[in-house]
Design a protein around this nucleic acid. Structure first.
Lengths: 218, 218
DNA sequence: AGTAAATACCCCATTTTGGGTGAGGCGAAT
DNA sequence: ATTCGCCTCACCCAAAATGGGGTATTTACT
């Protein structure tokens, strides 16, 4: 069985990339693919996040391709730690997972892109170019998920005014300040909120906000 | 001066697109470009949103290219109204504006993509393909803006625990329920919140949440 | 040794919240 | 024409939450 070379010689020209991927097959495939390109080369390829993080200053690369599922520290945590150490490093996730939660967590922690492993070879290289051009490379599905996450749900049982009130409530405002802002009496706001609770079948502010956020009413 | 033909004959094959764009030059350019492609044709080209909306059921197209700056109703409102009438219609914004506010407003109202008018011709056609493939076509800059909007700010003066508390507070929870959730005393939460107010230089929940959201601490 | 963080407790006064009930005006739909 | 939903406002009550003022202990890292 071949021992995978985790410390490839950086004898190739082009922008240097660091790869973090535990599957040796994929790691080698991506390395070969990237090294074939004119503009990029794999500086280092790690099989776990801990090693990659330990060597950040030595490697001195500002583009990381990061798997999510890794032995030990996972990719999300790894992004977080990398960004703390050097915020200029751009991390692109490359994974098999298209799970909502992982995508948004990765982006919140600072991922600059999110690709899936079934990406066609040329698209991977294109993605690196896009990244360097200030973009945020995403596969079709991920882009849809990201854009959809902004869409509000129009099937809301709440009236326009109620939505308005609930949004202000969700921003941490008190009944009185909502009333001031909407130029109505505090009692009016209380009425709206009571109706909101009725419609959403909840009994408190926190529940209402949670339900409304979950259903993207607000 | 040429009179622009706002009702082009649909004599061309391919998926039918509706265009809403007030500048006659750009309208004609996009129409010509799209009609040159094998897979798409411009069903109708409107110079304002009101007309486009009035004819939605007749036009029976499910892809709209929408400008933002329009005489009368603007593109954002138009997206909202279109989505109410028929949520299946996908609207892609095509505009000169790369302003954060407009981008996010358009996406919240239901835009499926956001392009800028300097887009290379082939890219526009590619974007339509991407849209049909379930994607969310965006120019490089817009993709970056969208992804950046998820990134949290690590330059926060707050400790990890304080961030945790503030996040729960921002989700509408009361001191007591935050305490329960974090398995500490309510008084501890109160202490944390006092420190948060000190650090953020605010004097109320709403202010703290607003400041933290604005600076993307949470 | 010093600092920051997390934890917990005390006091106080005020505001906020949730629930109940009722009611007038207004516009859209049947 | 009448009903219905929506927006508005009012008054009752009691519990909970909030903001501000303290102080103090333990842990952890430098």
């Amino acid at each position: 069985m071949n021992k995978v070379n985790l410390n490839l010689p950086a004898g190739k020209a082009g922008k240097r990339i660091v790869l973090v991927e535990d599957d040796p097959i994929i790691r080698e495939a991506f390395t070969a693919l990237i090294n074939q390109s004119a503009d990029y080369s794999v500086e280092k390829a790690y099989s776990n996040a801990e090693e990659a993080i330990k060597n950040i200053s030595n490697d001195n690369s500002d583009i990381y391709l990061m798997d999510i599922e890794l032995p030990g520290m996972n990719g999300i945590e790894a992004i977080s730690k990398i960004k703390v150490i050097n915020p200029k490093i751009r991390v692109v996730v490359v994974t098999v997972y298209e799970n909502d939660d992982l995508v948004f967590k990765a982006l919140c922690e600072g991922a600059s892109g999110y690709l899936t492993k079934n990406i066609p070879p040329q698209k991977l290289i294109d993605s690196l170019k896009e990244l360097e051009g200030g973009g945020a490379p995403m596969t079709t599905n991920i882009a849809r998920m990201v854009v959809s996450s902004f869409h509000r749900n129009r099937q809301s049982p709440l009236s326009a005014r109620e939505l308005e009130v609930l949004e202000l409530l969700a921003s941490g405002k008190s009944y009185s300040s909502i009333a001031d802002q909407l130029f109505v009496d505090k009692e009016t706001i209380r009425s709206h909120i009571k109706n909101i609770y009725l419609k959403l079948e909840v009994h408190s502010k926190a529940e209402a906000i949670e339900k409304a956020r979950k259903n993207k009413f607000i």
